[in-house]
Design a protein around this nucleic acid. Structure first.
Lengths: 219, 219, 219, 219
DNA sequence: TATGAATGAGAGTTCATTCAT
DNA sequence: TATGAATGAACTCTCATTCAT
């Protein structure tokens, strides 16, 4: 008469482990920040023992870097491809990009990464540089590309492309910070749809009423 | 024959002390973040012993809160007064406010506070709430007030005041993060003057070329 | 159509394994000491996995004991046989024995064993006792036997056999320690040939100049 | 009605502490070796908490070095002075030195230091070098000085001073190792008085019976 | 028999906090 | 009020040992 085997104390998951560990670590890092994250907790969340972490990552700092790295891989590939494919109007392209970014922010836990990087940039210059090179610089190039195309075609007003891109991106960044820093204390929360609409509206058409635009002030 | 008093081993500094401690703490917190800041270092920077900190602040968390509180006191008073005095055009008022904010960001170490609050919001909900109530909410009210005034007077296009204010503020916030997180790794740095110019330009006049504005597309 | 067998993932090495493991362990223990030796390294050196070690030895301590035991097996057999065969003069016999010991010290990695035993005697009393019984006591008996024979035959002066044997052995022991502890920091190194010559010279003829010997001081 | 105050939880011992810590550490290191010594135990033995150790020594390795350093300070000063004062015969001088060394070995816990240094030389090359320079080299110079003086005066036979000094010192070293490694397992123990007597006897007069000495074998 | 991923107790170290002075 | 030596809990990291494969 067979009776059930006791469940195994643990399982070999050599292939799956790294992903699981990074996911657990991402959650903890995002929730608590680097310093306040205890490896004990990461391990527990991943369902392994503390020692197992060290089979895959040399130490806490390396684990952190791995989390950031993984989160960024391939993040901008689609955007770069789409821009290179230059479909339609520059306005639509830019709108698409900002929409896409907002959508990602609102959906995924990965949006915690930028906040983490910002928070820890001082203590992890290496991470800051990596993020700057892999995300910010590439993002800048994409936006600048769209801007230049739009100005060339006459769709956009002449702006300072060296600086305008940051202004254009800023509301998306603010959405990230809102989500991860103030959502919990803001009784109204943040409706990303509406935030995006406001963003696009102001970005393209500005705040000034048409008849009073400075650009049309010339008599 | 009077002989000189030996110099006192320490001095009563009950009035000046808190300010000095808060300043030292601000510098350290901004440079390293909450967790990585050692009270030893704060004390050394303030020129007192570690124990003395505890005469003025119950613990590290209370010190942190005090730092944040002090940094924000009276920060928006002038802005509120000015808006209440409603001098001149709404556009000028808004421009003045954003200029003022940008100037403060670029000049003062205090701009590290928002970054700190953002970074530690998860671990210090109390701080997050305090900052939200004392800074964000008040800032929002100011901007919304200007927006409503401008829309009423016909200076501004109709926008969604509940959401537009965040979009309007965002580039200032991004300037803060740039300064405290990426300045060190960005070879170009950030010229706050130029950043502000781009910001105001886009904010008021938008990106779209006049003839193509959506708002004027109706025949 | 026969197709070739895949190479076996591992091989039965039941007979050869223990020797290989002990050799690898000896090298590591000698190089690093007991505590600082990691079984990981022993396994790697032996070309097996860590788990395999435990198929042959219950734990680290048992492995250590086995290393020591193996190193000592049959170490003194030849000496005992030769002394029992009492060939030639006692002087030559003693000289032969010290020469033989010095030769082994200078040549073999096995000389690391005494140093190991000395280092770890406190933590492994069992090992200390074993070494004491199997090596020191037997060595003592051999030397004492030669001494007694030489004194009986009039070749040697009367000495205290209970204590003299240690004095006689001491320079060999010092050679071991030199090799394993100070060779690396002594710019001159140690020439074992010359060390032995000095040893034998002083041992047999003493330091005092003949005319002044205390034993001949009688007028 | 006064009732007794509870004893203070701890006392400030800033001046006495380092000595107490080093003593406790010496005892533990000698008893267990470097690796097996737990700082917890050192602290307990010194009557302080673990953290206190770190107020005085940066880490375990530094504590170890400090223990060794302290044990060696001024160890050979008297010997050097005495030899420089060259009172009486070289034989007496050498005998005095070896007697002195043996006495120290037999009396003090400090004799555990050489054993420690020997054991840990591989893992602490810095310590090995330090010991070599401060103790071994100086000891060598002293003995060589005596040897050369004795040979010059005709008291001593010509020997190889470059190598003889080690042979002469060896029994003292062996006494150290005996005490710290085999005393516990040797049922007879070691009578240092008798050991010294044997040492001096053999050293000065050698083992060979007078009529048969090689140096006098010439007809 | 052999593997090596997984474990978990235990070590060194840090640092906010306390308290005798 | 001020000090800074002392504390001890909490953390990261190591590695002998186990066990599913």
């Amino acid at each position: 008469m067979p009776h059930p085997l006791p469940p195994p104390r643990w399982q070999r998951r050599a292939e799956a482990r790294p992903q699981e560990l990074l996911e657990a670590a991402l959650t903890e890092f995002v929730a608590r920040g680097y310093a306040a994250t205890r490896l004990d907790e990461v391990a527990r969340r991943a369902g392994v023992s503390k020692g197992t972490l060290y089979l895959y990552y040399e130490n806490k700092a390396e684990l952190f870097k791995a989390v950031v790295r993984r989160a960024l891989v391939g993040n901008l590939d689609e955007a770069e491809a789409r821009v290179a494919g230059h479909a339609g109007s520059s306005r639509d392209l830019l709108a698409w990009m900002l929409t896409e970014m907002t959508r990602r922010v609102s959906n995924s836990e990965l949006s915690g990464i930028p906040k983490l990087v910002i928070s820890e940039a001082g203590n992890f210059p290496e991470i800051a540089r990596f993020y700057f090179d892999e995300v910010i610089r590439r993002g800048r190039d994409i936006v600048q590309g769209i801007l230049r195309r739009g100005m060339d075609s006459g769709e956009f007003r002449p702006v300072d492309p060296e600086y305008a891109w940051r202004v254009i991106i800023a509301p998306v960044m603010l959405g990230i910070l809102w989500k991860h820093s103030f959502m919990a204390v803001d009784p109204h929360g943040l409706d990303f749809e509406r935030h995006l609409r406001s963003h696009l509206d102001l970005l393209f058409d500005g705040l000034s009423a048409p008849g009073r635009k400075r650009t049309e002030e010339t008599p």
